[in-house]
Each structure stands twice: as C-alpha cells, then as structure tokens.
C-alpha cells in the first residue's frame, strides 16, 4: 500500500474531451498525505460538532474523541490524489449547480406529468478528462443531478451516462460541467 501520491499540477482541460492528464509523482509518502487529510477532516468535523451543539464548550468532552475517531477513519481509507478547492471558483459553481439541479428536476417532473411521456432513453459513453479522485467523484455526482443525465457506471476513464433523451447534446453539457469542476478545483 506504500503508494506515492499523484499530485495534480495543471491539467489542460479547456472544455475538450480526451485531453491527457499530466501528473507529477512527488515523493510525498502516503503517511504524510493521510496526516494532512486527517487534520483537514478534524477541523471540518469540529466545526460540524460545534454547530450541532450550539458552540457549548462542555460538549467537547464527547466532541473531541468523536472528532478524533471520525477523522481517524481516513487511516482506513485508501489513499487518493490530493486536491484543493479554489475559492474563486466556488460561488460560480454553486450557483450554476443550483440552477442546473432545478432545471433537472423541472425537466424530469415535466416528463413525468406529460401525458405522452417524451422519453427516448439510452446509454452514452463519455470520456472524462478530469483526474481521478475528488474532482471525478464530484463530476459523477453532479452528472446525476443535471437535466436528463445519470451517471451509471465508471469504465476506466470514461463514464457511461444514461440519458432520458438521447437526442440532447451530451458532450456539450458535460464539457461545460467538466470546465466548472476544473475551475472549482483550481485545475485550469
């Protein structure tokens, strides 16, 4: 399991599929990567705990062990490539995501209520340019909330997408999404 981590430097994903991912193998051992992730997770969990308990300090008697145990779970998880979020990309992504998911829900609700049910379902394969790890997971989950698409399976570097209407322009939608995700993770 002593696997060196792949650090993503820059990825040429200018809204075009098939672009290869440049990875730089650094000498960061898995242990250090996990330690860093442990700290990040501990901070996040501490915030959640504090918010749940109305910032009461006496709750930390239980909170600290819980946070440590929860963050300690990273040592059971397989290592994954490192990533960082871009603060500049985040608001844009969130707004776009909200709009898209509303569109997606309205779209499917309309199809469900429509008497003749305008469906032409089918599968399409789409090659991803995003690097493995968090960006790809976010991409796959977001595809599911986009109008008319559902990520059904991951096959190597491409994703099998189920579409409610195969006439829609899948590549255009997903390219846009990839660009957004890349911006969020500061990959561009």
């Amino acid at each position: 399991m002593r696997q060196t981590e792949r650090l993503i430097d820059t990825t040429p994903t200018p809204a075009r599929s098939g672009g290869s991912v440049i990875t730089i193998d650094t000498a960061t051992p898995a242990g250090a990567a996990r330690g860093r992730r442990f700290l990040t997770m501990a901070v996040v969990l501490l915030v959640i705990w504090a918010a749940l308990t109305d910032f009461r300090p006496d709750a930390l008697v239980f909170g600290l062990p819980a946070v440590l145990a929860g963050a300690g779970l990273v040592f059971l998880m397989p290592t994954s490539p490192r990533w960082r979020l871009s603060l500049r990309g985040a608001p844009g992504f969130v707004l776009w995501f909200v709009a898209q998911s509303v569109r997606g829900a309205v779209d499917v609700a309309w199809r469900a209520f429509a008497p003749q049910m305008p469906l032409r379902p089918g599968f399409r394969r789409y090659p991803m340019a995003l690097p493995a790890g968090a960006p790809r997971v976010l991409f796959l989950n977001t595809v599911t909330l986009l109008p008319g698409t559902l990520s059904a399976e991951l096959a190597g570097d491409s994703v099998v997408v189920h579409m409610l209407d195969t006439r829609a322009d899948l590549a255009a939608d997903l390219n846009a999404l990839e660009a957004r995700v890349a911006a969020l993770f500061a990959l561009t």
Partner: peptide, 25 residues
Amino acid sequence: LGAVWEGFARLTLPAIVVVGTYLLW
C-alpha cells in the same frame, strides 16, 4: 463499489461518527 462510493465514504463516514456521538451527548 467503485470510486463514487469511495468518495462518499470519505466524506460521510467521519460525519456519521460525529452525528452518532452527538446523539449520545
């Protein structure tokens, strides 16, 4: 279970630990 599950597990398992302890508290 695949990559999507792994991402989910990374994100939520620690959160579930915190929520469980929160219930106890």
